[in-house]
Structures are given as structure tokens and as C-alpha cells.
Amino acid sequence: MTVERCREWRESLGTYALGHLPAEERAALEAHLEGCADCREELQSLAGVARLMPLADPERFGAAPEPPPLLGNRITATIGAERRVARRRQRRRFGLAWSGAAAAVAATAVLAIFVLGDSGGGSESPAQRVAFHSLPAGMQIDASLEPRSFGTQIEVYVSGVRSGTLCRVFLRGTHGTRLSAGSFRYRWDGDTHAMLSSGLDLSNTRAIGIRVGNHTFVAPVNADLRTDQDRRT
């Protein structure tokens, strides 16, 4: 039987599924259902919906509550903070591992650039981790640079510096331009992190420098450019 021929029966199926069809109409519809697989299938589908209806509260059919406007920002901020903590731990592990290797090649000033994959959880352009070498004994600096829409986000890790020392960070661009990325003061006896930013795109950055007290340490950021030795003044 075609759907068109079943149309009148179909329009009774909803009422039947809700248990509202008068007895005489119900008997006629049931007789039709006996011989119509399509209508039986349609009834089964509607009955599935009808079974859920008692679970709903009609008082709640009005507008749904909206989440507070700042909830999304709070969630992404919390996730960002967790990521930074995870990276810090990762970098500390990396720093310890590198210290061992550095001791073995102490006489040679070697600068290494580590281009990170996606291990930090990011799926955007890769962050670059830069390690500064040829540092005074007991001192460690490394930095992580990440491309952002505004330019470059820089996370600097410093240890082994006298508490209170002013640290000024800058980026050097393709034509030698130098842009400040801000400053921070090393305060603690252990180590410290600073989050900084620069308007210079990471792709146009050729070096990162940090002036710690009276000493400036520079490390190249993109491996294929400039020198492979950091400069110390």
C-alpha cells in the first residue's frame, strides 16, 4: 500500500501512539496495521518518541538556561595554565638531561636548537625551544618561543642567577632589528619562569637575546640562519 493511500491512517498513528485514539477508530487502525508493514514501521518509530514523553517536564519547555558569558574563557585559561605547568615540568626534565650532556662537552661552546613537535599538545605551528650554552658555571637559561596571532609568545626559564637580577629579553629580526620582549627580575634562589611577548613574528625572528645583569646571551632561533654560536658580551 502506498504512503499516499495510507495518509489518513498515518495521521491517526500519532494519536494511537499516545493512547488517545477512540476504541472504534483504534480497531479499524489495528486492522489496517495488520496488513501494512510501512505503517507498522512508522508506528514503531512514533511509539519510541511517545515512550520518552513522560520523562519530560513541560514546565521546562521554555528557553534553555545559557552558560555564563565568561565560562568559556575561564575554561581555556585553565587549560592554558595546565599546559604551561606541563611544559615547565617537561623543560625541567629536559634541562636536567641536558646538564649531564653539557658536562661531557664543557670545553666546547655548542648551541642547540630544538624544534618541538606536537608533544606539548599544540596543533598550531611548532614551538621552538632554544637552549643557551656557554653560560657561567651554575647558570642555566632556556626559552620556548611559540607563534601567536599577535607575534611571538616567549617563555624564559632562568636558574643560577643572583636574586634581584634584572633580566631583559629581546628578539632580533631578519634585518638585525631588535625588539624588546619585556623584562623581569629574577627573585628566587632556585629558578624562575617568565612569560613574555613580542610583536615580531616567529618566522621573522633570527635570534633571542637576554641581558642578565651586565651580561648578554644570544641564541639563534631559526637554525638555517646566522651563526651557530651564541655571543656573549
Partner: peptide
């Protein structure tokens, strides 16, 4: 959901429904 951008997109798509169900279940915004 590997980074904040993914989370923002997922939030924009689903937070309203998730919040609606959470309010209904917990009765406390």
C-alpha cells in the same frame, strides 16, 4: 581536543546543551 583552539570550538558548539543538562540535573547554576 588537543589545544585551546579545539576546546574553544567544542565549547561554542556544545556548551549550551551541556550547561542546560547540568542545570537540569544539579538544579544549581
Amino acid at each position: 581536543l588537543s589545544d585551546e583552539r579545539d576546546v574553544r570550538e567544542a565549547y561554542a558548539a556544545h556548551a549550551g546543551e551541556l550547561y542546560g543538562f547540568a542545570v537540569r540535573s544539579l538544579g544549581d547554576s
